[in-house]
Design a protein around this nucleic acid. Structure first.
Lengths: 305, 305
DNA sequence: CCCCGCCCCGAAAATATCTTTCATACGTGA
DNA sequence: TCACGTATGAAAGATATTTTCGGGGCGGGG
């Protein structure tokens, strides 16, 4: 069963071009120890690994050929051969293009200027990873669903709750009927009302937040079209999701909780959703946007510009 | 014998990195007809050829596998396998070189993939700008204020309200007494309670949002230390701010409201504040962080492994 | 005009590489 | 402790690559 799911997922995701490091991080938790060793080697030294055959990489990581192939599959490639090609591409990009730039962790005694630089760099990296790994087909489908939905419910708690509210605020601005639910009970209560033609969006980094999965399940079972925005596409939440949008998972450190970069990633996805929907509903969205600007204008003391 | 010579030559020339087209031209005269066909195909469509096996490329060029291998040798690679890897690298380079052309605005008819690329690029740009423009002295001072504050009130409405909540969530996690106010009336009511030793933070992009300025003024006048996070440091809000943190102002377009990039910018500033405070209060912050992780753990259905 | 020899070229054998299968060992929960 | 499911590597099986080898075109000499 589990394998079936994995294979379907792998099939749906076309071979990643340069978002490999991100994918490794995203999928690392669902990997076995041996596979993690392989993934680590691959992410750590793309150029070096590209020079190795299956057997070589297996020996290097102290595993077997089978494990290497399995890892390649999990990362979304048909086999090791293709992973190797992608690796070669990645290596070439790294070498020619931008600085590989070592992301040092933020330390307790870093001066504040370093903190700013490191944080900015990390968030930029997160954005790049997310954009590279985002499945545009799924995104397009999700946009279509939202644009056509009679009503949109968005679920998220904690840090993801803010992202849910952000999406809702934006959708409301272009005249769509959206609502963000923070309270799990109320969320479920409202989810019961949904039916075919409605849309439900669940936002959860872990992919296993019960408080968010539950309303999505109810919405799903009542016939609403469901969308999951998660960093763990193999988590339980995807069971009830018609469309899955994957956010990138950056490694966290003691001082920097995962919530920070997952939020950046989620916001990018949400922004893409919003722009996509705005494009599709441009006729109504544009006037609605201007209207909301004007309505807000008088809340500013002086026209600041 | 002839082979010996070729091998020596190949050995002396390290695998070409990206100067493949040049090499093809240089060596073309010394190639036989069939080999020229292969070389031409390779130079003309690296990406396409990288996807082909020896047999595939042989068929495409109407030649045989042997000829393909011979061509690869002539180009300086040990065999076709290595040529293929180089080809993949070249293709990746070409593609990435094309990407930076996304400076343009987002148009109504942009395909979804372009939207993703442009949004990601813009937000990255915003981050870079913000980090570069951020006054680390002011930031350091603000961090000191928050770390020492008895109580922290954060004001923000609309999109900035979410940023206010984000900051509050984080500060609460490390054991500080923080509260976000969305309701302007309640915000003012609470601001009256503040006094010296307390801190108030106002978040407003325009710098002229009355609903946010008002509570900050009250807090300021009651002796609290005040911090403004704004994109318009010359706006009214700074009158009542002891410390001003400037967020970057990106141009907005019809489809992309200013709220989008200002939010990115604000979040970076808020993250920097948070990390700074966490550093200064590390002794208490670290245990508080771990505690909040554990408290949350049981809200996840299954340990995602 | 025909013959001879050189070397380009591709078919097929030989080899390397990748993939799949299967049995074992490991860890986990009852 | 046992039973079950899962992870893992050894080896068989399938592909891809490389090598070998002989046919055949082309130019020069007879």
């Amino acid at each position: 069963m589990t394998h079936e799911v994995k294979e379907i997922f792998a099939g749906g995701t076309p071979p990643a071009p340069a978002a490999l490091a991100a994918k490794v991080r995203t999928l690392a938790p669902s990997m076995t120890r041996s596979m993690q060793r392989v993934a680590e080697a691959v992410a750590g030294d793309p150029a070096g690994c590209a020079a190795l055959t299956v057997t070589g990489l297996a020996e290097l990581t102290g595993t077997s050929e089978a494990t290497v192939v399995r890892t390649a599959r999990l990362l979304g490639y048909p086999g090791y051969r293709d992973l190797r090609l992608a690796l070669a591409g990645l290596a070439a990009q790294q070498q020619s293009g931008r600085a590989p730039a070592v992301t040092a962790d933020i330390a307790v005694d870093d001066p504040i200027a370093d903190v700013v630089a490191k944080l900015a760099y990390d968030e930029q990296q997160t954005l790049a990873d997310t954009a590279a790994a985002l499945d545009t087909v799924q995104l397009g489908a999700a946009v279509g669903v939202l644009a056509a939905a009679r009503r949109i419910d968005v679920y998220g708690v904690g840090a993801s709750g803010l992202v849910a509210q952000d999406l809702t605020q934006k959708l409301l601005r272009i005249g769509l009927l959206a609502h963000a639910h923070n309270d799990p009970h109320l969320a479920v209560t409202n989810a019961v009302q949904l039916r075919a033609g409605d849309a439900a969006v669940a936002i959860t980094h872990s992919g296993s937040t019960g408080d968010v999965i539950e309303p999505l399940r109810v919405a799903f079972e009542h016939g609403a079209t469901t969308i999951a925005v998660t960093g763990h596409p193999d988590g339980p939440v995807t069971q009830y999701a018609d469309h899955v949008l994957t956010t990138s998972t950056a490694r966290e450190s003691e001082l920097r909780p995962a919530a920070m970069s997952s939020r950046t990633s989620q916001l990018l996805v949400v922004d893409c959703l919003f722009i996509g929907v705005a494009q599709q509903t441009y006729e109504t969205a544009a006037p609605a946007l201007s209207a909301s600007y004007e309505a807000l204008a008088h809340r500013h003391r002086t026209a600041a510009r």
